[in-house]
């Protein structure tokens, strides 16, 4: 029936010229939401390529067609291609009598140690025993910071509530020592003590700092953690792309391995500080193709959430 009217309404195809002003606005809009400029460009370009020459739906204009296409792209970028199910994987490792290890890495001050503590709390609440490995042996107070968290969580989950076993312990060797070595000792300790999970805290480092990036690569290479989490803050702007690219690059280049361990997932922190400027989530997932495994939404142990893709996309397009 609709075919009959086609000629009457006039088939309109979408041209590059018609799209250009709308896409320009869209790009600025996304940048205003803190999507990195390059990524906003690439997104718009790919939508343009996809739509050019297409027949416009009878009841839709160029603007709404573009909006929908952008929405689809955003949803796709944020939707994990691969599910990371930590609780399941911890269970599996446990059944094989080996500890499950997560390494936290990222630039300075983004929230590695705090969110490590939140994940520790979450694991303990799920009945797993955790060992925190204090492998930031550089930054002043880093060890005491973790000790405080370990003590607090141990108080929330005392052995008497858990059949006499310590649910949270700290493995530390003070400052100035080799981080990779401490991580290894901690993992061995966990294996001997039948501790389920080892959470490895590392020092913050700038992605361009070659000696420090080499040291991180070594830590990951020699310890082969089950999960490498990149911790990035939702506040970060255009640097997000460079951070992730260079962390991955360093893990690949400095490992001298055929199949090096790269970043497996992203922990996006300080999500409570950015209102609707949620674009960093796009920049980070687009750059790596890896999912946002957790979102940090505050400074207490329970401020750890899963990413709500629809809510983020709505905020981006609002």
């Amino acid at each position: 029936v609709f075919n009959m009217f086609k000629g009457l309404v006039g088939q309109k195809t979408i041209t590059a010229e018609a799209m250009a002003p709308v896409l320009d606005k869209m790009r600025d809009h996304l940048i205003g939401k803190n999507v990195a400029a390059d990524i906003a460009d690439q997104l718009c370009t790919s939508v343009a390529t996809k739509l050019e020459g297409r027949v416009l739906g009878t009841f839709s204009g160029v603007t709404s067609t573009i909006r929908q296409a952008i929405r689809d792209s955003l949803v796709q970028i944020l939707t994990p291609k691969r599910r990371i199910d930590i609780l399941r994987d911890v269970m599996e490792a446990k059944s094989q009598n080996r500890p499950y290890t997560i390494t936290f890495c990222g630039v300075n001050g983004v929230g590695k140690s705090t969110n490590l503590a939140k994940i520790c709390f979450w694991l303990v609440e799920n009945g797993f025993r955790v060992l925190i490995a204090a492998c930031d042996t550089f930054r002043a107070g880093a060890v005491e910071q973790l000790r405080t968290h370990a003590r607090r969580m141990a108080a929330l989950h005392p052995p008497e509530n858990h059949g006499g076993v310590k649910m949270v312990q700290l493995y530390e060797k003070g400052y100035g020592k080799d981080a990779a070595g401490i991580a290894m000792e901690a993992i061995n300790f966990a294996r001997e003590q039948h501790i389920d999970v080892v959470l490895v805290d590392t020092a913050g480092r700038m992605q361009d700092n070659e000696p420090l990036m080499r040291a991180l690569s070594k830590l990951i290479k020699v310890n082969q953690p089950e999960l490498v989490l990149f911790v990035g803050e939702a506040l970060v702007g255009n640097d997000s792309v460079d951070q992730l690219t260079k962390f991955n690059q360093a893990l690949a280049d400095f490992s001298s391995m055929e199949n090096p361990r790269l970043i497996d997932g992203i922990l996006l922190t300080k999500f409570d500080t950015i209102d609707d400027k949620v674009g960093a989530s796009i920049s980070m997932t687009y750059t790596t193709g890896q999912p946002v495994v957790f979102v940090g939404t505050g400074q207490t142990y329970t401020d750890l959430k899963a990413l709500n893709v629809q809510a983020v996309v709505n905020a981006l397009l609002k």
Binding site: I31, G32, K33, N34, A36, V107, G109, A234, L235, V236, G237, N238, D239, S240, Q243, T273, I274, D275, K277, G279, A280
Partner: peptide
């Protein structure tokens, strides 16, 4: 922090 984006 020098890396802060649009929320600054």
């Amino acid at each position: 922090d020098a890396s802060i984006g649009q929320a600054c």
